[in-house]
Amino acid sequence: MNNEEQKGLQKVEFYPNLPAGFDELSDHEKLEIVKRIQEQDLEVRKEVMKKIGKSKVAENDLYTAIGVIQQLDQEKKIYSQHHKGETGSGTYDLTVRGGDTKFIVPILVVIGVIILAVILLIALLKAN
């Protein structure tokens, strides 16, 4: 829209996407269609509000989940937390793994394997 057009009274097109045949309809039919569009508009708003509600619930669930994770961190536990849910626009899926950072157990396992391998090696050399 250029500056010249913005001066004075302008014709406002409410529903520019309506097909050309719309103007040929009777006033009653036009009114019916406009009413239908308005009802649809309300329905869309309702749907968006529902989605916002769902998003708020998901946000709250995520906050609760992070609270649990922080608690587990404080207790220095090894954990794997999985949270899944629905948001207003789709879905979310969150997995958090945390806990012991020293990895004592896997290290001991690896050392054990190495010792076994060395014993095996010595046994083989002696056999030869």
């Binding site: 789709g90 879905t91 899926d93 969150l94 958090v96």
Partner: peptide, 23 residues
């Protein structure tokens, strides 16, 4: 809104932890 919620959540996860999130 959903993206912001998820980002705020993952920002609160401690650095030494691992996470994977899908939205």
């Amino acid at each position: 809104y959903d993206l912001n919620s998820l980002l705020n959540t993952v920002k609160n996860i401690q650095d030494h932890n691992e996470y994977s999130a899908r939205l």
